[in-house]
Design a protein around this nucleic acid. Sequence first.
DNA 1: TCAATATCCTACCAAATTGGTAGGGGATAT
DNA 2: ATATCCCCTACCAATTTGGTAGGATATTGA
Lengths: 138, 138
Amino acid sequence: MLSKKTRYAFRALSYLAENYGKGPILICTISTEKKIPLKFLEGILNELKKANLLESKKGKGGGYFLKISPKKINLATVIRVINGPIALLPCVSLNFYEKCEDCDEEHCGIRKMMTITRDATLKILERKTLHDIIFATV
Amino acid sequence: MLSKKTRYAFRALSYLAENYGKGPILICTISTEKKIPLKFLEGILNELKKANLLESKKGKGGGYFLKISPKKINLATVIRVINGPIALLPCVSLNFYEKCEDCDEEHCGIRKMMTITRDATLKILERKTLHDIIFATV
DNA sequence: TCAATATCCTACCAAATTGGTAGGGGATAT
DNA sequence: ATATCCCCTACCAATTTGGTAGGATATTGA
């Protein structure tokens, strides 16, 4: 399951995607518009910025905006930044790999099944983007 | 990510699958063989029993054993019993559905993407069984 | 240059979840 | 009768989750 934080991230990003190219958007605008706790949202947007998905501008007329086109931000990237691994087991994760204790990975049947599952999931999450989210909305 | 408990469940079930048809297996045998904390394992096996995947026998010569063939126990079932929902959002879950607050599900783009993801994941997890786990081990 | 605006940073907090442990009760085969 | 083995309840520490509070820092415009 995705954390509430990740769901907030998606909602904030959708809003920024809808307003792509219109200049900086205030945190508090996103907060009230998408009903996300202000200070909590602050942290989320900051993380997304550090992950190079967002750009920010301080001072009057400032705010947040997408650094790249909504078509270039896929769902897997967002989930990895805010939620963490996509694979169901650490020993199967591409970006958050951790070795299994007491298990010969080469011959582990559980691992094999989870690898197949991960590939099927990633095939979707890496192909779908913020653009798909906002244009599926109709 | 699957919890450690779920991983224990899979390892215990694999062991029982390998010994399918050989009568009851002691908790403590599974515990030492698969390196799972005894008392913790007790609870796991009990839950799997309540979910009708296992059968148990009390007293001397007792133990646990699979209630049905390893070919008939798919991975999605196990995950749902021990870990919970498979979908990435509650509003997309088939077995643990919860309504979204503040979101028109019919027109929610995030939901649409997560539904597609869920279907891709389930297609694998519902098709693969304990039998596939133990025979992928070679 | 100064004040207003807005992001950024650090610290804190309560509640829930996770990964266990402890200890005894109850059923059953011999 | 008793040794064996599953079953049940309660407890516990560590981590994660979902926030809040308050100020530091950067930018703009008057």
